[in-house]
Design a protein around this nucleic acid. Structure first.
Lengths: 118, 118
DNA sequence: AGAATATTTAACCATCTGGTTAAGTATTAA
DNA sequence: TTAATACTTAACCAGATGGTTAAATATTCT
């Protein structure tokens, strides 16, 4: 069992729950961008995007560095590691359940049958 | 590039963003439970837990079957597959970035040096 | 200095969220 | 039939969320 920080998971999953923020991350994954550049494809005001960026920043999913008046934003996917592990743990459980179910059905369907090969 | 359903991701990540719901899933992973049973360890009212269960249900993360007055709840981790894939895509990007960064630093730090072995 | 650009902050609003208590609906037990 | 059990629904509340417009702050260009 891995140990997870509840606060980090709260913030990470909450940040990922918004489609605009996921799109922003998608753009970031294709190169660092400034705020205006990131805002352009999203049919909403600049302050709205600014807020989304702050949410992502608080979740630790991005870093920003100022060069004069432009902010250079880059993706920091570190928090995704915990999130990925958490999800995988349950996904594997589910896979395990399916496997056990398959075993079960296997035995149920042909209880006295001998396997042909091997 | 994998194709994701935005609505599904919205609901899945939002469902996972709450610690109570994650704890409920953790309990479910250890066996099917009825509502009262699931509610007991959470310092909150039954209706509150009932709401959480509905959120998880709408996100497709659990199924329920009624036996008389008790509801048997079981984990359904299918939606986690998409979520896991989405997260992994960005995690890998990050890993890739780190690798590229490492390469870069490698070259920067010893620009004229010949590698000793191989 | 003055104008344009990049970005944030402030104030506001509607809707969603996570909790409450009280009441309602089935189902099972006495 | 009455009482207990398992659960949901309704009504409410405080605070968060996601958007808006208008104003403020820095920086760069002319």
């Amino acid at each position: 069992m891995v140990k997870y920080s509840s606060r980090t998971l709260n913030r990470t999953f909450a940040a990922l729950a918004d489609p605009t923020r996921r799109r922003i991350l998608a753009h970031l994954a294709r190169g660092d961008k400034c705020v205006t550049h990131l805002a352009k494809p999203h049919a909403m005001s600049l302050p709205a995007v600014s807020k989304h960026l702050r949410v992502l920043e608080k979740a630790g999913l991005l870093r920003r560095r100022r060069y004069g008046r432009v902010h250079e934003i880059r993706l920091d996917a570190k928090p995704l590691r915990q999130a990925a592990q958490w999800v995988e743990e349950y996904r594997k459980f589910w896979q395990g359940s399916l496997d056990r179910l398959a075993d079960y059905l296997e035995k149920q369907n042909r209880p006295l049958e001998k396997r042909k090969t091997k």
